[in-house]
Computed example of a mutant assay.
Amino acid sequence: MDTKIKQLEQELLNTRLSLEQAEVILLNLIRLDNQTGDNFLLPHEDVIVTQKSAIRLLQSSQI
């Protein structure tokens, strides 16, 4: 029973991480659409999350 709970907790954590990463990627894409200027700003933390998301996607595609 305890093992099942830990497994469910891990699945919940992974799901939350995936949702957070998707949100950051979408926000970054929105920020890239700067029609009023020649530049855009992305918070450093969002860049790190995007990089980790890309690595996670690449790793999962190799399974």
Results as ranks from 00 to 15, higher is better:
residue 1 M to I: 07
residue 1 M to N: 13
residue 1 M to T: 04
residue 1 M to P: 11
residue 2 D to L: 15
residue 2 D to T: 13
residue 2 D to R: 15
residue 2 D to A: 15
residue 3 T to A: 15
residue 3 T to M: 10
residue 4 K to E: 15
residue 5 I to G: 00
residue 5 I to H: 00
residue 6 K to L: 02
residue 6 K to P: 03
residue 6 K to Q: 06
residue 6 K to M: 09
residue 6 K to V: 04
residue 6 K to T: 04
residue 6 K to S: 05
residue 7 Q to V: 05
residue 7 Q to C: 07
residue 8 L to A: 14
residue 9 E to F: 00
residue 9 E to R: 08
residue 9 E to K: 15
residue 10 Q to I: 00
residue 11 E to W: 05
residue 11 E to K: 14
residue 11 E to G: 07
residue 12 L to K: 14
residue 12 L to D: 09
residue 13 L to V: 04
residue 13 L to A: 12
residue 13 L to R: 11
residue 13 L to M: 09
residue 13 L to T: 04
residue 13 L to E: 04
residue 14 N to A: 13
residue 14 N to W: 05
residue 14 N to F: 10
residue 14 N to L: 01
residue 16 R to T: 07
residue 16 R to I: 07
residue 17 L to I: 08
residue 17 L to F: 10
residue 19 L to R: 11
residue 20 E to I: 14
residue 21 Q to T: 01
residue 21 Q to M: 15
residue 22 A to P: 03
residue 22 A to L: 08
residue 24 V to I: 01
residue 25 I to G: 03
residue 25 I to V: 11
residue 25 I to S: 02
residue 25 I to Q: 01
residue 26 L to Q: 10
residue 26 L to T: 11
residue 30 I to R: 06
residue 30 I to C: 10
residue 30 I to K: 11
residue 31 R to S: 05
residue 33 D to G: 05
residue 33 D to W: 10
residue 34 N to C: 04
residue 34 N to G: 00
residue 34 N to E: 10
residue 36 T to A: 13
residue 36 T to C: 07
residue 36 T to S: 06
residue 36 T to P: 02
residue 38 D to A: 12
residue 39 N to P: 00
residue 41 L to R: 11
residue 41 L to I: 15
residue 41 L to E: 09
residue 43 P to M: 06
residue 44 H to Q: 10
residue 44 H to M: 08
residue 44 H to K: 08
residue 46 D to P: 01
residue 46 D to V: 01
residue 46 D to E: 10
residue 46 D to N: 08
residue 47 V to D: 06
residue 47 V to W: 12
residue 48 I to L: 02
residue 48 I to V: 14
residue 49 V to F: 02
residue 49 V to S: 00
residue 49 V to P: 01
residue 50 T to V: 03
residue 50 T to I: 01
residue 51 Q to D: 08
residue 53 S to L: 00
residue 54 A to H: 12
residue 55 I to A: 09
residue 55 I to D: 12
residue 55 I to Q: 11
residue 56 R to L: 07
residue 57 L to C: 11
residue 57 L to I: 14
residue 58 L to G: 13
residue 58 L to N: 14
residue 59 Q to V: 05
residue 59 Q to A: 07
residue 60 S to I: 13
residue 61 S to T: 04
residue 61 S to K: 04
residue 62 Q to E: 07
residue 62 Q to D: 09
residue 63 I to W: 04
residue 63 I to H: 07
residue 63 I to R: 06
residue 63 I to F: 07
residue 63 I to S: 09
